[in-house]
């Protein structure tokens, strides 16, 4: 989250989970982190062309099509709904805001989400027991809004059957962790 410290002493410290490992086994790894800045960016009506261009300039990414995400080293952009995207990155909020001006509404959601990363050979076996998605059709680069144990979340396919990311609201993270860890311990 953005701070303006310059010559001020830092008083508040964010609680950050940075690639904290939950499970590390031969065929399954599970870690989570919340150290990304996350913004909702919703396009203003009738600004598509300019919005598009601006988006590309800001994030060096094309706008993700429906139910897809785009990623590079600095940013991850997720299609959320018509004309609305969720962008994760390490950039400062105010500077993003200023770049979009009247082209979009920006909402800071940085504190609200945790990323859980799953990878390994047993990933498919794990996700079959969690998700109602058709994993065979859930290709690399796809994102879906779904629920795990009644927790609404986003699931992203980074590598089919091998690597996935779950974006979970932070208030649910304890329940999500318990569920994932318990299940991972049963299958891996």
């Amino acid at each position: 989250m953005e701070t303006n410290y310059v010559s001020k002493k830092q008083i508040l410290f964010p609680t950050i989970f940075s690639s904290e490992n939950l499970i590390v086994k031969n065929d399954l790894k599970l870690n989570f982190n919340n150290n990304n800045n996350i913004f909702s960016i919703t396009e203003t009506v009738n600004q598509r062309k300019n919005f598009n261009q601006n988006f590309k300039n800001c994030f060096s990414l094309e706008l993700p099509p429906i139910a897809k995400f785009k990623v590079n080293n600095d940013f991850l952009a997720i299609w959320v709904r018509a004309n609305s995207y969720l962008v994760l990155g390490n950039n400062k909020f105010k500077s993003i805001l200023s770049k979009f001006e009247n082209l979009a509404s920006i909402t800071d959601q940085s504190g609200g989400w945790v990323s859980l990363n799953i990878e390994g050979k047993s990933t498919k076996s794990l996700l079959e027991k969690l998700l109602s998605l058709d994993l065979d059709s859930f290709e690399k680069g796809s994102v879906s809004r779904t629920a795990i144990n009644k927790i609404n979340c986003f699931v992203l396919c980074n590598e089919k059957f091998q690597k996935y990311t779950i974006l979970c609201p932070i208030s649910f993270i304890n329940s999500m962790k318990v569920r994932l860890v318990n299940l991972a311990n049963l299958i891996a």
């Binding site: 303006n4 008083i11 964010p14 504190g111």
Partner: peptide, 30 residues
């Protein structure tokens, strides 16, 4: 607290002089 973005609302549910302070979740414990 030296630059953490926040929102202040002067509203009261208790009937006392009161405020509600809103700031990013990850700073709550601190």
């Amino acid at each position: 607290c030296g630059g953490v973005v926040a929102r202040l609302f002067r509203i009261s549910f208790s009937g006392e002089l009161a405020y509600e302070l809103s700031f990013p979740t990850q700073y709550a414990l601190s």
